[in-house]
Amino acid sequence: MHELSIAMGIVEAAMDEARQRNVQVSAVHLRLGALSGVVKDALLFSYEVACQDTPLEGSRLLIEEVPVMVFCPRCKEKRVLQSVQSFTCPECASPTREVLQGKELEVFALEVEE
């Protein structure tokens, strides 16, 4: 389980942004791709642990799950995969390996108080 190291990275990034703006963080908005290799529930649990004894203690982690988007070479269109177990176009069933989105692990926004 590497979610704890990831959670510590999130806390560090949020603290750094908060310091620069001289604000208090009450929530962290995270974009989490289906191909990021990170498990949402494990991350939520680790986040609480990672926040302990930091200025972020008591803050919330809000996770937006980002599905995998691929480019279908046959339809010439962007398509959202139905499952990471099947890299085929949901419309025409062509296999595709061109991933456009889904690896995100990004602190997108912070809810802050002055």
């Binding site: 990831i6 990275g9 999130i10 990034a13 949020a14 942004e17 703006r21 604000v23 009450s26 929530a27 908005h29 995270l30 692990l105 990004e106 602190v107 997108f108 926004a109 912070l110 809810e111 802050v112 108080e113 002055e114």
Partner: peptide, 17 residues
């Protein structure tokens, strides 16, 4: 204390790596 507000930061967690 003022109302909470949302600031966009868009920071990749694994950027250092």
């Amino acid at each position: 204390m003022s109302e909470p507000r949302l600031v966009e930061v868009r920071r990749n967690v694994l950027k250092q790596n």
